[in-house]
């Protein structure tokens, strides 16, 4: 799958701003970014819902809009929400989608795998969010697609169900399908993806495997949380005290993230700075650099902050 210089606007808002990325076959590829980063718009362009306003998109070598008839049977789509008649039953809905395909999966087996048997005769509108989400995934898989697009597959799911969904995706990859998922959960991307594309404000900010993205550069972090808001100019004065080797990023008014070499002398300098500036640390946490830190360094924003924006 290839996205090349894609631009999508809604009125004056630019949702996708010259995005280019590639998805290799037989991988799990995560498109990671905060809400509003342009993930869903990009995915919906690949699914043929939207026509690129500029740039191009190819899936399995096909144009999703022009070659829709050839492409649609070969892809499976899990929407963020909805997608079923409110009065239909899960089993009925899944059998309906199955019947639109030539060689669908065995519906009973799929229901067993995804824990949908418990839905019984309950109409869709009365299913729990977790069951709706699992039915959405089942509908995406039942036609035995080559490429599966899943939009925020585990948003709002309890941990056990999340693991079930992850296992199914790993099995899909093993069996030769390609999975493209969007997420704003770091752990999901880190755990599942062979390749991660980090996007922010409609632009690609980094690509690579989880290891490539977290390796290199600073390997450790210090998170400083204080009891009352930092004095004005705190990040600058702390950076001056620590030297060029250390990056200082403001997380919120009570916490800072330092990335760089977190050795004993850095820690000592942080403590001294606190003493000199009359700042009382509540906690000083050492950590290794993870995707969350990478995202923060690249965009200056936390994923969580992106979510609330």
């Amino acid at each position: 799958m290839e996205v090349d210089a894609l631009v999508m606007r809604y009125g004056d808002t630019v949702a996708v701003d010259g995005l280019s990325l590639t998805v290799e076959p037989h991988t799990i590829t995560a498109v990671l970014g905060p809400n509003g980063a342009g993930k869903t718009t990009t995915l919906e362009t690949c699914e043929g819902y939207r026509k690129p306003q500029s740039g191009s998109v190819r899936v399995l070598g096909l144009d999703p809009v022009r070659d829709a008839r050839a492409l649609l049977p070969r892809i499976g789509v899990m929407l963020q929400e909805g997608g079923a008649w409110s009065g239909s039953r899960a089993d009925e809905m899944l059998r309906h989608i199955a019947a639109l395909h030539a060689h669908p999966l065995d519906v009973a087996m799929l229901e067993e795998r995804l824990g949908l048997a418990e839905c019984g005769r309950t109409p869709y509108r009365r299913l729990s969010g977790g069951l709706k989400q699992r039915l959405g995934l089942a509908m995406a898989l039942v036609g035995r697609p080559e490429v599966v697009f899943v939009d925020e597959p585990t948003a709002g799911l309890d941990p056990a169900v999340r693991r079930d969904v992850w296992e199914v995706m790993e099995e899909l990859r093993e069996d030769g399908a390609t999975v493209v998922l969007t997420t704003h959960y770091m752990d999901e991307a880190e755990r599942l993806a062979d390749r991660i594309h980090i996007i922010d404000r409609g632009r690609l900010v980094a690509s690579g495997s989880p290891i490539e993205l977290t390796r290199g550069g600073p390997t450790s972090t210090i998170r400083l949380v204080v009891t009352k808001p930092f004095p004005p100019g705190a990040p600058e004065s702390l950076k001056a005290a620590l030297g060029d080797q250390v990056e200082v990023v403001v997380l919120d008014e009570l916490s800072l993230l330092l990335t760089g070499s977190a050795d004993a002398s850095t820690l000592a300098r942080v403590s001294r700075w606190c003493e000199e500036n009359d700042v009382l640390p509540e906690s000083l946490t050492l950590g290794t650099r993870n995707l969350e830190d990478v995202f923060l360094e690249l965009t200056g924003r936390t994923l969580a902050r992106g979510v609330t924006e």
Partner: peptide, 18 residues
């Protein structure tokens, strides 16, 4: 490679879908 989810895509015939 044959597993549970090995791809085997295809549309049903149009009359059947309708």
């Amino acid at each position: 490679m044959t597993g549970t989810f090995t791809p085997m895509p295809g549309a049903a015939t149009l009359p059947r879908m309708v």
